[in-house]
């Protein structure tokens, strides 16, 4: 049905585009909010995403879900716009070499919590840690963990190879556990 709508929009029935705004508006808005730390810009960016999607509607051939195609535009536009602006850097930058040295078990250790209070605290810390990731990493973990997109779909949306996505996911998880360790202990774990 959606592809049919798109064909009709291309043929001049522009008012039908409202259907896509109503259906996907909030989903794209949520994705943009999760990628950027500034919520005020999110609505403007969402509007830009839909305008850009309208302009390139002819290039959509129905090879994937329309939402996936929209996410591809949203991720690309959001990271480009954020890159142009001054980016918020993590307080303590992570050295890639250091990241490789850290034992993978640290990940499970950082994510373990038992009582409810600790669970809430862990969620707060995790949210802070996510905000320290780069926009690209936030986009990737949002697509993979929240939107439950496959590695293949993430690769399509972020215009990267599947192997690259797997590596980036692994590194993002390690970074998160490192950030959580820093938040909890105030220093870095021993490798």
């Amino acid at each position: 049905m959606e592809y049919e709508y798109i064909k009709r929009i291309i043929n001049g029935e522009i008012e039908l585009y409202g259907y896509f705004l109503d259906t996907y508006g909030n989903r794209v808005y949520a994705l943009v909010q999760r990628i950027i730390n500034n919520r005020e810009d999110a609505e403007d960016l969402t509007q830009e995403v839909f305008i850009k999607a309208f302009e390139s509607l002819r290039s959509y051939r129905g090879e994937c879900q329309f939402s996936t195609w929209l996410y591809r535009i949203a991720c690309n536009l959001t990271t480009t716009v954020v890159r142009k602006k001054a980016r918020q850097e993590p307080p303590i930058p992570v050295d890639d070499m250091r990241l490789d040295e850290i034992d993978s078990d640290i990940f499970d250790e950082q994510f373990s919590s038992e009582p409810d209070d600790e669970h809430q605290e862990l969620l707060d810390d995790l949210q802070l840690a996510i905000s320290w990731l780069s926009e690209e990493e936030r986009g990737l973990i949002t697509l993979f963990y929240y939107e439950e997109k496959s590695v293949n779909e993430c690769a399509y949306i972020l215009r990267q190879s599947e192997n690259n996505i797997k590596v980036q996911l692994y590194r993002a998880r390690k970074k998160l556990s490192l950030y959580l360790y820093r938040i909890k202990h105030g220093n870095e774990p021993q490798s």
Partner: peptide, 17 residues
């Protein structure tokens, strides 16, 4: 871990358009 991450990510966007 997967669910925890999902929950934390979900918290990052609560507003609607």
């Amino acid at each position: 871990n997967h669910n925890l991450l999902r929950e934390a990510i979900a918290r990052r966007a609560t507003d609607t358009l």
